[in-house]
Design a protein around this nucleic acid. Structure first.
Lengths: 225, 225
DNA sequence: TTTCTCTGTGTACGGTAGATACAGTTGTCG
DNA sequence: CGACAACTGTATCTACCGTACACAGAGAAA
């Protein structure tokens, strides 16, 4: 995986035939496949076929599949958002919600952004726009600010992943019916949840707890929010 | 992927040749490969070769590769821990740290536990032993207790993943040197971090913020911890 | 001993990523 | 204009992957 690929703009060649494809068109076709059938369905063959070309033609635009996935992620993530005016807490709340929604729009990005990988400009841009609001005067060190943003991002990622797992929850219900007695506290919590009904506020709950925790530390450090 | 596989004990056959392999031996060989070279290096061929058998022999013990990975995860996770006595906060702090260390021991489990998958008894057991400490009398609803534990688990997973990415950080440093001016706040935070030195407390920082947030909610709900 | 079941093996198939060689197109320069 | 160089997409090839299936041998039950 070449890091430069996500950052460098390659000069458009002047000689030779006009390219029939483009990086953007390839990425969009791949994203459409991933949205519809998951990341596992994205193969060079499949994407090229979707565009009416042979798979090897894609290698004129991309060094390999890893780069394709990286470009897909960058495109699916979108430009970093313009956050509403307000304090750091409101800004980070909005930021994490937007990230959460981006993950929901393209659930495969969750699986595509695990492990070591080169970060593209947009992924860094999202980090930047959160850090811009958690400024240097909030009483947190640089490492703490980075970690605070990472915790929020991790929460958005985890909750988006959970909401993508309807059939997993169904399969788990079957298991719980058979082995529920081995997990009394888990069973109780799930029964309560089912009785309450409202489960869509799971993301907001965790996010607000994290922000509560940050706020209490900041208050301890500088005496105000 | 058959859910029953992780839960059911298959009866040992009485007739025919003695099995030369065992599920445990296969999983251990696969885990050794994954620990050394990553999950991508785990193929039926490779695991069977490691044991001195042909790949097709593995299918006498496992329906397919998905089940192999599921068994690997269950084995690598280990039995749910016995948490020290104490309040919910100390217990959850220890719990998330143990989970974090389990992820560090087998970094590939992070990538193997994304997306919809059948949960095994140990994965549920870990949830159970955390929920047992965040009891019904803490003022949180069932859904809130589940989400609180999920946030802590997600944090452990995310930080374990980050610490596995030394070369990613290195590659990012190169990128920042070239395009750092586009990300001033990110650059500042990273410079500060590098100057401070101590980055191993990143996990504890996030964990303590999450626990702070939970504590402040519980205090609001029932007036005490 | 015969029978039946389970074991591990060999072969085969369709899928994957990717290297390489090649034919056709097209801009630039003599 | 003609020759050349650069670039395109295609066809072919290798090396894997997971796994379906048929089969020979092992070994306990009948």
């Amino acid at each position: 995986m070449s890091v430069e690929f996500l950052w460098g703009e390659r000069a458009a060649p002047t000689r030779g035939p006009k390219p029939a494809l483009s990086l953007a068109a390839i990425a969009d076709a791949a994203i459409a496949v991933a949205d519809a059938e998951g990341l596992a369905a994205v193969s060079m063959q499949r994407v090229a076929g979707e565009l009416g070309f042979t798979k090897m033609s894609l290698y004129r635009y991309l060094p390999g599949k890893a780069e394709l996935v990286a470009v897909m992620v960058e495109r699916a993530l979108g430009e970093p958002p313009e956050l509403r005016a307000g304090g750091w807490r409101e800004a980070l709340a909005e930021w994490s919600e937007l990230l959460y929604e981006a993950f929901l729009r393209h659930p495969w990005t969750i699986g595509a952004t695990v492990g070591s990988r080169p970060l593209g400009p947009r992924e860094l841009g999202w980090m930047e726009c959160a850090l811009a609001r958690l400024g240097r005067d909030c009483g947190l060190t640089g490492a703490e600010r980075l970690d605070a943003v990472a915790v929020l991002a991790g929460h958005a990622r985890m909750l988006a992943q959970q909401s993508d797992e309807a059939e997993m929850t169904a399969a788990m219900g079957e298991v719980m019916r058979q082995h529920g007695d081995r997990f009394p506290y888990l069973t109780a919590a799930m029964m309560e949840t089912a009785a309450e009904g409202g489960q869509n506020l799971a993301f907001a709950f965790g996010r607000d707890r994290i922000l509560d925790g940050l706020e209490s530390l900041i208050v301890r450090r500088i005496g105000r929010v």
